[in-house]
């Protein structure tokens, strides 16, 4: 039985990441000595330190008497997946996916995709409203980023831009 879930998993996370960095440094780079350090020295030492800290946190979590408010609770999968998906789809819209031959669709398409997908993460999705918000954002972004700041972002889909 884990007493303080939040601390226990934090500790486990640190052990995992710290250990990972330490192993990676050890295998991938020259560690060297305190006198002549290699590129692996600093990350190796830090990785070990992080793993030790993580272990202490996790062990202390087991001994912790208080249990109130230390449960992790349910993971909000819907917002988590949709917000991250919206972000990734924006990347796909701007840069395309060369590996499967998908051409870039540009900023305007990207804005509508991001707004729609992100809005789905909320609990009050209304098509018309989201459409209007997208339109306003598209106009503002065009003005701010393309007209005024002249950022080098493809604006229109490939079939219009060429």
């Amino acid at each position: 039985m884990i007493k303080n879930q939040r601390d226990f998993y934090s500790g486990a996370l640190f052990v995992l990441v710290g250990g990972g960095f330490a192993v990676w440094s050890y295998l991938g780079y020259r560690i060297g000595t305190g006198l002549r350090m290699g590129p692996g020295y600093f990350p190796f030492a830090l990785g070990i330190l992080l793993a030790i800290l993580g272990a202490i946190i996790a062990i202390k979590a087991q001994m912790d008497g208080s249990t109130g408010g230390t449960r992790i609770g349910a993971v909000a999968w819907r917002p988590l997946l949709l917000i991250i998906a919206a972000n990734l789809l924006f990347g796909v819209a701007i840069g395309g996916l060369p590996s499967i031959g998908l051409p870039p669709m540009g900023l305007m398409v990207g804005i509508f995709v991001v707004t729609f997908v992100a809005s789905l993460a909320g609990d009050e999705f209304q098509f018309v409203e989201v459409f209007l918000v997208s339109g306003v954002l598209a106009a503002l972004s065009y003005l701010a980023f393309i007209v005024v700041l002249r950022l080098q972002i493809p604006v229109w889909p490939f079939f219009i831009a060429e």
Partner: peptide, 19 residues
């Protein structure tokens, strides 16, 4: 309303990171 605000923040973050 937050339901308008948060998609905008996601968008500006993404544009900012890309640019």
């Amino acid at each position: 309303p937050y339901r308008w605000l948060f998609p905008s923040i996601v968008l500006f973050c993404a544009i900012g990171v890309y640019s």
